[in-house]
Amino acid sequence: VAMCDYCKLQKIIKETVRFSGVDKPFCSEVCKFLSA
């Protein structure tokens, strides 16, 4: 469980994407796409 980078809620992380050398955790595909 970690904080989703988009919705800022403590959730089970399903996706982690690396932006500019920094790992960004996301709880769902939706949050990942909305943050892009």
Rank of each mutant, 00 (worst) to 15 (best):
S35Q: 06
L9M: 15
L34S: 10
K8W: 01
D5S: 13
K32M: 14
E15C: 12
V17L: 10
K14S: 05
S20E: 13
S20Q: 13
L34M: 15
V30W: 13
K24M: 13
G21F: 07
E15Q: 06
C31E: 00
K32C: 12
Y6Q: 11
I13L: 01
V17D: 06
R18M: 14
E29V: 05
S28C: 04
C31D: 03
L34W: 07
T16Q: 07
V22Q: 10
T16V: 10
C27S: 03
C27Q: 05
K11C: 13
C4A: 04
K8M: 02
C31G: 02
D23S: 07
K11L: 05
D5P: 06
K14T: 09
M3K: 06
K14W: 08
S20D: 15
Q10L: 08
Q10T: 12
V1R: 07
E29L: 00
V22A: 06
V30T: 12
A2I: 01
R18I: 08
A2L: 00
Y6R: 09
R18C: 09
C4D: 03
K24G: 11
L34C: 12
S35D: 08
S20A: 11
C31Y: 10
L34Y: 07
E15D: 10
V1E: 09
K14L: 05
C7L: 00
S28Y: 02
S20K: 09
F33I: 10
I12E: 15
C4W: 11
Q10M: 12
V30N: 15
I13V: 13
T16L: 03
K32V: 02
V22P: 06
K11E: 05
C4S: 01
S35R: 05
F33K: 14
D23W: 05
S20Y: 12
C4T: 05
E15S: 05
K11T: 10
V30D: 12
Y6D: 02
M3F: 09
D23N: 08
C31I: 01
C4Q: 03
S20N: 15
P25K: 14
K24Q: 05
G21I: 07
L34P: 03
S28A: 02
V1D: 06
I13F: 09
F26D: 05
I12W: 09
D23Y: 01
M3G: 03
D5C: 08
K14V: 09
G21Q: 07
V22Y: 13
V22D: 14
M3C: 05
S35Y: 09
F26Y: 14
M3R: 09
V17W: 05
I13S: 13
E29N: 14
I13R: 09
V30Y: 15
S28W: 00
K14P: 12
D5V: 03
Q10S: 08
E15V: 09
K24A: 06
C7G: 03
K14H: 08
A2F: 12
T16Y: 12
V17C: 04
L9G: 14
K32L: 03
S35V: 00
C4Y: 07
R18H: 10
S28M: 04
C31A: 02
G21L: 05
V22F: 04
C7Y: 05
D5R: 05
F33T: 15
V30S: 12
L9T: 14
F33C: 15
V22L: 05
I13A: 12
A2C: 01
V22W: 01
S20L: 07
E29K: 11
G21W: 04
F26K: 04
K8N: 07
A36E: 09
A2V: 05
E15M: 15
I13C: 03
C7A: 02
V17R: 04
E29S: 06
I13Q: 07
K8S: 04
L34G: 09
F19G: 10
R18G: 07
F33Y: 01
V1K: 14
R18S: 13
I13P: 13
P25G: 11
S35H: 07
V30E: 14
A2G: 08
M3Y: 13
V1I: 15
K8V: 00
K14G: 07
K24L: 00
T16G: 08
Q10A: 04
L34F: 15
L9P: 03
V30R: 13
V1N: 12
F33D: 15
C4F: 02
K14E: 04
K32G: 04
D5Q: 08
V22E: 11
T16K: 11
D5K: 06
D23Q: 01
E15A: 08
L9S: 15
E29C: 00
C31V: 01
